[in-house]
């Protein structure tokens, strides 16, 4: 059997296997009171209620949790973003570069890093930081901030986030939801989830 035939059949078998198993689309269960590691980092969370973790990862250090779908409630954890890297995966490094987290990024600059990332990644013009204040995350002194923006689907959304810098890495959790109905409905679930996040010492 030539290499071409062998490779082609391997491709076909993989294609059939992945579709048949549904593994490509299977989202993960994050069960109440069971500890879960975030994006292969030292951050963990023990959720106070059941959540879903989407299979699709928006970035190397990020993972998305949701109750009804990311369109309606999106909790994104960023587990130890290394200096020199963006928060989310760049679609095209040359044409659509994203701002990078660097060794010189200050905690107070993290909200602007998220703003720049959203503007470039979502290709949106409207984003407003509504509040920034000191606050705890992962048991350390960090920053809490809130924001508003209108996404590509023309739906105004509200967001709330917590971030902290530990050992020159960025740890953050964001919550985004439509300002109509869904933001207020899920906000307390997000806060208790963010409170439950920890980092290994």
């Amino acid at each position: 059997m030539t290499a071409v035939i062998r490779n082609t059949w391997v491709l076909t078998a993989l294609c059939l296997a992945t579709v048949a198993s549904g593994a490509v689309h299977a989202n993960a269960y994050r069960e109440k009171d069971k500890i879960s590691k975030i994006a292969n980092s030292s951050m963990t969370v023990t959720p106070p209620r059941d959540w879903n973790r989407l299979t699709i990862k928006p970035g190397k250090y990020a993972e998305v949790w949701t109750l009804d779908g990311e369109q309606l409630n999106d909790v994104t954890f960023y587990g130890g973003v290394e200096p020199g890297t963006p928060l989310l995966r760049e679609r095209n490094k040359k044409r659509d570069p994203l701002p990078k987290f660097t060794t010189t990024t200050l905690l107070v600059e993290v909200p602007e890093l998220l703003e720049g990332t959203y503007r470039a990644h979502k290709k949106i013009g409207s984003f407003t930081l509504t509040n920034t204040q000191p606050g705890q995350f992962l048991g350390r002194d960090g920053v809490h901030f809130t924001y508003d923006y209108t996404d590509q689907d023309d739906l105004p959304r509200k967001g709330e986030a917590r971030a902290v810098l530990i050992d020159k890495k960025l740890y953050m959790v964001t919550f985004d939801a439509p300002r109509l109905h869904y933001f207020n409905r899920t906000l307390s679930d997000f806060r208790t989830l963010a409170d439950a996040a920890k980092i290994a010492k």
Partner: peptide, 13 residues
């Protein structure tokens, strides 16, 4: 559509 109609992509909860 994504999380209920598309059976293979349903949310575990």
């Amino acid at each position: 559509v994504n999380y209920q109609f598309f059976v293979g992509n349903r949310l575990p909860t």
